[in-house]
């Protein structure tokens, strides 16, 4: 692994809380140019939270997140806006705007951030639809698409500005194995063709091993391991092996806590204070 490539995402000692519950504990990681980094972990491991911090949608308790050389939490609003035109995001649900056709969805970043004429925007939109094998679907509404098509349309929208950095949240979740595999191929092709750095959040092991250059394994907010695919496969760490071999873990039982739970006494910190109201960013 050559370390000379530019770092596109740099996370340093990131600590985050949801209410009083700590979600991420001292997370640090780097993503280099042209690299596919897979963030892996089970449900509740904090991987979605980490992604939201990388996107600047949440504010950390402490630590820094630098994207393309700028700290996303302290940069000025204009800088962040400019930064965001250089990164693309494909959300788990696709998050296509349901009131717009597929073509309008994909064209939106171009219409909002560039002064290109309608003709050029149309060509670029159809070009990206070709890339994700959705040519000819631009007039359909998102509700008329299948799950796999929605994910691909979301990818097309994410790459329409030719970003240096692409984030994919669970690209293969909820898809059948063949379609999931085709999405993986698409991600690999995008990296090879455009040389972008790609951060993929997933819990799908097969997909992770297929596309990753390096894997970051999150477990209850800790970075359990951050290494190449081969190293992760051969890791002696028991928890990683459990994850890889799909073994369930026996949680150690604390008799007192167990009794309290049975009596219905909620842990105090999980009370109402946790429900942070999320506002328009």
């Amino acid at each position: 692994m050559s370390d000379t490539r530019r770092v596109t995402v740099e996370v340093r000692r990131l600590n985050t809380h949801y209410g009083t519950r700590q979600i991420l504990k001292d997370v640090s990681l780097d993503v280099r140019e042209g690299e596919i980094m897979v963030i892996m972990g089970g449900s509740g491991s904090g991987k979605s939270t980490l992604l939201n911090h990388l996107l600047g949608l949440l504010r950390p308790t402490s630590g820094t997140v630098k994207v393309l050389g700028k700290d996303i939490n302290t940069a000025s609003a204009l800088d962040v806006q400019e930064l965001r035109t250089r990164m693309g995001v494909a959300f788990q649900s696709g998050a296509l705007f349901s009131s717009m056709s597929v073509g309008d969805n994909i064209a939106l970043p171009l219409r909002e951030h560039t002064r290109l004429d309608a003709m050029t925007i149309g060509i670029m939109t159809r070009l990206k639809l070709e890339v994700v094998s959705l040519a000819g679907f631009e007039d359909l509404m998102p509700s008329e698409l299948s799950g796999g098509m929605i994910k691909r349309a979301a990818l097309a929208r994410a790459i329409v500005m030719d970003p240096k950095l692409l984030f994919c949240d669970e690209p293969s979740a909820g898809l059948d194995p063949v379609v999931a595999s085709s999405i993986d191929d698409l991600i690999l092709r995008l990296r090879d063709a455009m040389g972008m750095s790609i951060v993929v959040v997933t819990h799908d092991l097969d997909s992770a091993f297929k596309i990753a250059d390096r894997i970051c394994v999150l477990d209850q907010g800790d970075v359990l391991a951050l290494d190449t695919v081969a190293a992760i496969r051969n890791s002696p760490n028991e928890r990683i092996q459990n994850l890889l071999n799909r073994r369930t873990e026996e949680a150690e039982v604390d008799p007192d806590a167990y009794l309290r739970r049975l009596l219905g006494e909620r842990a105090r910190q999980d009370g109402e204070d946790d429900s942070q109201q999320r506002h328009l960013p």
Binding site: L57, Q81, S93, A95, P109
Partner: peptide, 16 residues
């Protein structure tokens, strides 16, 4: 909001 469309706007650099 629940479809993450608001987040999608924000990360595109479009103020919701």
């Amino acid at each position: 909001r629940i479809n993450q469309e608001i987040d999608a706007l924000a990360v595109m650099g479009i103020s919701p």
